[in-house]
Design a protein around this nucleic acid. Structure first.
Lengths: 194, 194
DNA sequence: GTCTATAGGCGGATAGAC
DNA sequence: GTCTATCCGCCTATAGAC
């Protein structure tokens, strides 16, 4: 039987840490806070994790791993570039909704990683951005996209999906599917009516 | 004679604080760090400011004040809704480039404000967002914009201009004007070629 | 207005009993 | 594996000399 993510206390600590870091920031969340959420004393957590820094690393690299493996899958499909970019936007929104706390930590608190993890994480992110940018570039070359600056297009898309973290609540007026459809409309066809 | 912003030591402290908070976060930047940047001892700063919290408040409310007053000016013009939205996008990019550290702190560290400042800041931001959303809504009603969900459009635009803070360096391949033109293209006409 | 010294609290992490 | 007790360092802020 494959253990679920919450099977052991170690994973419970990581999940609660993600929520707490998202809420208070890495620096603002203390090990005593975290222990209280988990239901044990701070000292007891050190039987499950090595340090507070290790917790941050585990969260950040789990998230970067998800993005990179999913990008590889999308790259390998035979879809058009428009479809591939739509799939990437959909991926970001879905991960944000399903695993929001961890994604949020990887987005905001990665800078508190210590070397060598910091450099490793930056490289992973750069690798992801390069793959994403290549799809935009190829889409422009293929005539599917407007000849916009590739970096601007890349970061506009990446940023535009980030606010979902701040805004989305399950049971909001908009369903996840409607949210996704609206963001894709904004990014691919723009606000202005032509 | 009107004093410039750097005329007194108090303002120097605020400017250095904005840079430091942007770099390390409010919690990660200590008063000793800040004093070292200013060139005095930590204790000496308390002759110019009341507390670390006061520094954060002064930075955040200066920024929110700028946005709100500029929004009022744009609302009062006779331009089309397309032009008004373009002016707002331009405002965000310009403030980010000219006063990036303070804007960044107001974007990220406002959550460390203490009551009653926290509630006051949230209300100011909500007021700004409502004004911005109203322009989008009126633009849709006037037939200038696509009938997209107003909140989605608003937050997509607000987020899309935020990454400029992470990306823009004076002397990058793209000038501020080109950057602005490219972002406006992305947001108003979209990535896809039609 | 700046300094040195320090108060008083909270941080991460460890030792050792059970 | 969990606890209590504790180390030691850094934090914001203040007191008081100059």
């Amino acid at each position: 039987m494959i253990p679920t993510r919450k099977a052991n206390k170690r994973q419970l600590i990581l999940d609660e840490a993600a929520k707490l870091f998202k809420q208070k920031g890495f620096g603002g969340a203390s090990m005593r806070d975290l222990a209280s959420e988990v239901g044990i004393e701070a000292a007891s957590m050190y039987n499950h994790i090595k340090s507070k820094d290790e917790i941050l690393e585990l969260i950040c690299f789990r998230v970067s791993g998800m993005y990179i493996s999913q990008l590889a899958e999308i790259e390998a499909t035979a879809a058009s570039y428009v479809e591939k970019i739509k799939a990437l936007i959909s991926l970001h929104i879905r991960l944000m909704i399903e695993d929001g706390a961890a994604v949020s930590v990887a987005n905001h608190d990665w800078k508190y990683l210590r070397e060598p993890a910091l450099t490793e994480f930056k490289n992973a992110r750069k690798q992801y951005e390069k793959g994403f940018a290549a799809l935009i570039e190829q889409g422009i070359a293929a005539g599917e996209f407007q000849p916009v600056n590739v970096s601007v297009a890349l970061f506009t898309i990446l940023s535009a999906v980030r606010w979902v973290e701040l805004w989305y609540r399950p049971g909001r007026e908009l369903s996840a599917e409607e949210l996704e459809a609206n963001i894709i409309t904004m990014l691919l066809t723009g606000l202005e009516k032509k």
